[in-house]
Write a protein that binds this DNA or RNA. Structure first.
Length: 496
DNA sequence: CGTGTAGCCCGTAAGGGCTACACGGTGCATTACT
């Protein structure tokens, strides 16, 4: 038994690695920067937790969502690891202070890119040896770092300030371009790459055309009524998520609810937990839902609209069938879909006047507190996301209307191009799986003829319909959900 | 593009009807502290 296997057994109770894990871990242990792509549910957290036990010093994990950090810390604690914490806004001032003052005690510290903006946090982190700098869901760097969450684009610089620890960038879905972007922004020129296929052979792909929205709604109701659940319906807007959930509730026997970014965080957690514990059959949501939803038995994912990118599409359908059992993805198309998404992307555009206002405020004020600046700018009618993006560009030295405008138009054009491509991929003639994999620079060799492939290759949708009686539904009372929650946490802890 | 709504007009009053225009999706953070 090697040292690696011993450690695996000692801390995780496993006797063997999942596909891809060992290579990634060996790369980390040899001190190299590593970029790893593992399919969803492929055991990504083990790839940094195990080396964490073998290396001296702290493992710092940058994570995009509070809920992901909390889940990970809880799982570590259930496994008996007390030296884990998440440093974020959910902590009280005292708790935060405690973590920072005792920072040398921690083995695994989770935080957001925004938290690393604080000079005080950075100073504290400099006082401890960091054995590994992990970026979880690393595609967020490319997806969000240029506009929505610019702090993601500063991680490369931050790493230098932290004494240049080795980096592990983890993701499940990325094209070559996205990986290149991640490497540029993180300044990882010589990283070892461990890439696995994004293909999920157990998910059959289907595209259906509808004449209009009314027909789509009818079809969704029909599908939800007949398909074996649980399932997810991805919607283009918050309003659609709410409306479809209402339609499904009133016209089918399915227990449905909605989920989007405009909800209170308590409600979001509740809905997600109910879904995970089988108290809901179907969830209608925007693209806010999904990251960190580690539910193994999702049987179908319906897209009520066009996704904005092929990467997003793969991420979203990839939430189905993590248990490896047959699952299905169905995309509904109708005229006008493309235009709606196009308009959502074009909301990001800004007028010359707005840019000029931003520049004037930035030049007039000595204040570099971004929050205060954003408040000022919002008084000029500039949206929060736009304000943040423009401040970010200004700080990078793009201090003229022309430069800022050019950059924003360029980003928007890239997004529109990605959308045109996914739209094209989903409507062209030919095998859908092959189209998607080609986009991800993969070749496709059908491995066996048993698994249904796609609506072009042909398959029988009734394979995915429920047989006989609907499965027994768990009651919606609080003590039973609490018991289920505790039970599931223990199970998760044992498995990981 | 499609939808919701603010604000205006009409007018011996209140609310209906119209036009113009904004909005649509992803999340951290939110106070000093050694």
């Amino acid at each position: 038994m090697t040292k690696l296997q011993q450690t695996l057994y000692q801390f995780f109770g496993f006797t063997s690695f999942k596909k891809g894990q060992e290579d990634i871990i060996r790369s980390i242990l040899s001190g190299k920067d590593t970029i790893a792509m593992l399919p969803t549910g492929g055991g990504k957290s083990l790839c940094y937790q195990l080396p964490g036990y073998m290396l001296d010093g702290m493992v710092l994990i940058v994570s995009p969502l509070l809920s992901l950090m909390e889940d990970q810390v809880q799982q570590l604690k259930v496994r008996g690891e007390k030296r884990a914490a998440a440093l974020n806004s959910m902590l009280s001032r005292q708790e935060r202070q405690f973590v920072l003052e005792h920072i040398h005690r921690y083995k695994f510290l989770y935080l957001s890119p925004e938290a690393l903006r604080s000079p005080y946090v950075l100073e504290k982190l400099k006082s401890v040896p960091i054995s590994l700098f992990v970026i979880d869901e690393a595609h967020c760097i490319s997806e969000w770092g240029h506009d929505f969450r610019p702090d993601y684009s500063k991680l490369g610089q931050l790493r230098k300030k932290l004494g240049h620890p080795p980096v592990l960038a983890l993701t499940a879905t990325a094209t070559k371009d996205t990986l290149q972007d991640v490497m540029n922004l993180l300044e990882l020129q010589h990283a070892e790459r461990h890439l696995n296929s994004v293909n999920r052979p157990n998910i059959a792909l289907r595209v259906e055309n509808a004449a209009d929205t009314a027909e789509k709604i009818n079809r969704v109701i029909q599908l939800v009524e007949n398909l074996q659940g649980p399932g997810i319906v991805y919607c283009p807007t918050r309003k659609w998520a709410e409306e479809l959930a209402g339609e499904i509730k009133s016209k089918t026997s399915s227990r449905a609810d909605f989920y989007h970014g405009g909800m209170e965080s308590g409600d979001r957690i509740l809905i997600q937990q109910q879904f995970i514990h089988n108290q809901l059959d179907v969830i209608c949501c925007t693209n806010a839902f999904g990251m960190g939803v580690d539910k193994p038995d999702i049987r179908y994912v319906i897209h009520f609209h066009l996704p904005q990118t092929a990467e997003a599409f793969m991420q979203e359908i990839g939430r189905a069938g993590r248990d490896g059992k047959p699952s299905v993805s169905i995309l509904l198309r109708a005229p006008g879909d493309f235009e709606l998404q196009e308009q959502i992307i074009q909301m990001e555009s800004v007028t010359d006047e707005e840019i000029a206002n931003v520049i004037r405020v930035l030049e007039e004020t000595e204040e570099r507190d971004e929050r205060r600046l954003r408040d000022v700018l919002m008084q000029y009618g500039v949206g929060e996301t736009q304000a943040r993006m423009m401040i970010h560009l200004f700080m990078q030295g793009k201090t003229s209307v022309e430069l800022i405008k050019r950059e924003i138009s360029y980003r928007m054009e890239l997004k529109l191009e990605k959308m045109r491509r996914v739209s094209f991929l989903l409507q062209r003639d030919g095998c859908l799986r092959q189209s998607m994999l080609t986009y991800f620079d993969e070749s496709y060799e059908p491995d066996d003829g048993n698994l249904p492939c796609c609506s072009h290759c042909g398959f029988d949708l009734s394979l995915y319909e429920q047989k006989g009686e609907r499965s027994k539904k768990a009651p919606l009372d609080s003590w039973s959900s609490e018991l289920q929650r505790i039970f599931s946490l223990q199970t998760v802890g044992e498995l990981n």
